[in-house]
Design a protein around this nucleic acid. Structure first.
Length: 564
RNA sequence: UGGGGGAUCGUCUAGCGGUAGGACGCCGGCCUUUGGAGCCGGCUACCUAGGUUCGAUUCCUAGUCCCCCAGCCA
């Protein structure tokens, strides 16, 4: 597995230069600041790898995990728990540096009082609608609120009463006094505190006013001694506000905000709002639905943390908007699993094969290599007998050009076993569907035997009918039928959900060694792909998720062929 | 037509005045008891127009296009 390349990027360069110059006292402290209002996804993984990577690469560096829990109406401890699990599962350790913005509520409040005393904040009684009107537009300056020149004492008193719970939600806000005419709308007296008579999952009912992101975030960073506060592009024009807050509140330390482009992936959704919608509307089975790009989803699907880290290391960090092709993610899980996943044989869509010249009632154990990429993985025994199942796709009654597999009169090798020849087939008289193949096997061609050198064009996988275990296999296809960036905002994006994103195949047959597989185990089903035993799987009812198919040269050839 | 950002192969990304490189993808070939893996070769890019310079993807000027901002969300 390719280890973190620590490929350079503009942020790494800035941090390295600062570190070398002894800025921030030579320290490098970053943070991953999720809001606990949803599960994290691979876009967050990019940020996690960046932030932890930056800190880990520096002597004495640290990366904090900080929950940005300033909005109790949407946040939930379930998410706090899940996010911790996911960060840990990805392979990162915050070394005890786990914090909550809510830890700072008292200090944040003190900073607010100071801002009021400095004449830099005021209590406003405008309603939300009025405030919007007063804010102006992108091209017109805003107007000062009538509350803007309240006396210092009035402000202090009103703010005290806000905190004491004397006012209803929405009636008062604390606003920064900056510039209602600023061309940067974020500087038009942004709201610092709003009233919410809602209990907070951590602070209970201690507070009925909660700080806004623009106020809490920079001060939380400052309080923790964050040196480089890395966030996504949409916060770029909040930076002047970020700096204003830290400066004017006389915070102990000035962190540096740096923005980068968030990750987008083709044919999937990467917005918390949309993911929540999928979960709430039960359009997916949950946050861990294997079709989702959530960490929990990827994990259940069978992705390894190593593959996700390798992916994040290779996509780079820059400021231009980018949408990475899903194939790149798939590349990294294939690369990882090719080296470590044991091979087994499984037939997804079984076609019965009867070896007419193989003695009835007889069976033998054949040796099969566990992983040709890893000699240490050893080998196992696979039972062989007269009646087998092969993949329906591996037989064609009327084979097209370049089809090397089984067809009437043709020969093929059974993996780790004999060469067989198709003699005849039986069909369902009603439907015409092929129900079984009659073949003969050549005993001299046992895999590895001296006379086994005869060349055949294909080797196919199989499972012995009497020995195989039944299984359900779940195949996953892209969540969306289009790139959402192309869908107009006012359109219902769920119309572009792929109706066949989940394909459940029952009646699959897997080799007996898989009977005792445990959930989370990953195997390569030879010639098919990499599969992960699902948590739904039991000894009686095996369930596998396809993580990613193997590259399929034949599928490409077939697709390129003129349809006959 | 306010402000803030961004434009390099199909997709990501490097470049920091000196032959535009890598990865994925795609196309060939070799090899193969997985049409997998591996190996070899090829493919295609500097938004436009001027300027500075011996030399510009890089610096300057003027355009063009794309993204973000008018939540008491983050």
């Amino acid at each position: 597995m390719s280890e973190p390349s620590s490929a350079s990027n503009f942020i790494r360069e800035i941090v390295a230069a600062d570190h070398a110059a002894g800025k921030h006292g030579g320290r490098v402290v970053t943070r991953f600041p999720p809001e606990p209002n949803g599960y994290i996804h691979i876009g967050h993984a990019k940020s996690i790898c960046l932030n932890f990577g930056l800190a880990n690469g520096t002597l004495g560096g640290a990366c904090h995990l900080r929950f940005d829990d300033t909005n109790p109406t949407t946040e939930d401890p379930e998410y706090v728990q899940a996010i911790q699990e996911d960060v840990r599962w990805l392979g990162f350790d915050w070394q005890g540096k786990m914090f909550f913005a809510s830890d700072y509520f008292a200090q944040l409040h003190e900073f607010a009082v100071r801002l009021i005393q400095k004449g830099l904040a005021y209590v406003d009684t405008l309603t939300a609608d009025e405030m919007r009107t007063y804010r102006g537009t992108l091209t017109e300056p805003g107007k000062n609120s009538p509350s803007r020149n309240r006396s210092l004492d009035d402000n202090l008193d009103l703010f005290r009463r806000m905190k004491a719970g004397e006012f209803a939600d929405g009636t008062h806000t604390l606003r920064a006094k900056i510039d209602m005419a600023s061309p940067n709308i974020n500087l038009r007296d942004p709201v610092l505190y709003r009233i919410r008579h809602v209990p907070h999952y951590r602070t209970g009912s201690a507070w009925c006013l909660y700080p806004s992101y623009d106020y809490a975030h920079p001060l939380s960073d400052a309080l923790e001694g964050i040196t480089h506060s890395i966030c996504t592009l949409e916060f770029e024009d909040h930076r002047p506000l970020y700096e204003w807050v830290v400066e004017q509140a006389d915070a102990p330390h000035q962190p540096q905000q740096i923005e980068f482009a968030r990750l987008n992936l083709t044919y999937t959704v990467m917005s918390k709002r949309k993911l929540l919608e999928l979960v709430n509307k039960k359009l997916v089975t949950g946050w861990d639905d294997p079709r989702l790009p959530t960490i929990k989803g990827l994990r259940r699907r069978g992705y390894t943390p190593e593959s996700i880290r390798a992916f994040c290391d290779h996509i780079g960090v820059a400021k231009r908007e980018a949408t990475v092709e899903m194939q790149l993610l798939e590349h990294f899980i294939r690369e990882d699993l090719n080296k470590r996943a044991p091979r087994v044989m499984a037939v997804l869509r079984p076609l019965k094969v009867i070896l007419d010249n193989y003695p009835e009632g007889q069976s033998e154990e054949l040796e099969a290599i566990n992983n040709p990429e890893d000699p240490a993985a050893g080998s196992r025994q696979v039972p062989f007998s007269r009646v087998l199942y092969i993949e329906q796709d591996d037989f064609r009654e009327d084979p097209p050009k370049q089809f090397f597999r089984l067809a009437p009169g043709r020969e093929v090798r059974l993996r780790y076993a004999y060469i067989i020849k198709c003699i005849s087939m039986t069909k369902d008289p009603q439907t015409g569907e092929i129900t079984a193949l009659h073949c003969t096997y050549d005993p001299a061609t046992m895999s590895g035997a001296a006379q086994a050198q005869r060349k055949v064009k294909a080797t196919i996988h199989w499972v012995s009918a009497d020995h195989g275990a039944k299984a359900e296999v779940r195949l996953y296809h892209p969540l969306l039928t289009t790139d959402l960036a192309k869908v107009p905002q006012d359109q219902d994006w769920t119309a572009y959900l792929n109706p066949t994103s989940l394909e459940r195949i029952t009646g699959c047959l897997v080799e007996p060694s898989l009977r005792h597989t445990t959930s989370g185990a990953r195997h390569q089903f030879e010639r098919l792909g990499y599969f992960c035993t699902d948590i739904d799987s039991t000894a009686e009812a095996l369930v596998f998720n396809r993580i990613v198919p193997l590259k399929d040269a034949w599928a490409k050839i077939e697709k390129a062929q003129p349809s006959k």
